Amino acid sequence: MRSELETLHEIGRLFSQARTAAGLTQEQVAELAGISRPRYRDIEKGAAAARATTLMNIARALGLEMMLVPQTMVPAIEALMHPHDDDDRPAFAVQPDDGDDHG
């Protein structure tokens, strides 16, 4: 499981990528999200946590939609978002037993 610091850095990295792809400055995103530029900068750098509503406002300013999911679903969602190169099976697929000789 990720630490809080790792999660903050990952959120910041994703916001930074989306902002760059959208061709926006930190000032523009902050204004669209209704927060100050220094506050947005700290969130993007992973140096500060933010309320869920602030994160949703930032996501929407970047043309993203943020979803809250049960913690037990996080591994399945991550598997869907980041499949292994050699493993492109659905996240919920039943894995065959290694000793299964049906074929």
Score class of each variant (00 low, 15 high):
M1Q: 08
R2P: 08
E4P: 07
E4I: 12
T7Q: 04
H9K: 15
E10P: 02
E10D: 13
E10C: 08
I11R: 00
I11K: 01
F15H: 06
F15G: 03
S16C: 07
S16F: 01
Q17Y: 01
Q17T: 08
R19A: 08
A21Y: 00
A21D: 14
A22Q: 12
A22K: 12
T25W: 06
T25F: 02
E27G: 02
Q28N: 08
V29A: 02
V29T: 02
A30D: 06
E31H: 13
E31A: 14
L32K: 14
G34H: 07
G34K: 06
S36Q: 12
P38W: 05
R41S: 12
R41W: 00
D42C: 09
D42N: 14
K45E: 04
A47P: 06
A47F: 11
A48T: 11
A50K: 08
R51W: 03
R51S: 14
R51M: 11
A52M: 14
T54V: 13
L55K: 01
M56D: 15
N57I: 05
N57H: 13
N57Q: 13
R60G: 00
L62G: 09
G63I: 06
L64R: 10
E65W: 03
M66E: 00
M67A: 14
M67K: 15
V69D: 07
Q71C: 09
T72E: 14
M73R: 13
V74L: 09
I77K: 08
E78P: 02
A79M: 12
L80I: 04
M81W: 08
M81N: 02
M81G: 08
H82E: 14
P83H: 04
P83N: 02
H84Q: 11
D85T: 12
D86Y: 11
D86V: 09
D87E: 13
D88T: 14
P90I: 00
A91I: 01
A91R: 01
A91N: 09
V94W: 05
Q95L: 11
Q95W: 09
P96I: 04
D97Q: 13
D97P: 00
D98A: 13
D98V: 08
H102D: 15
H102C: 09
G103N: 07
G103W: 11
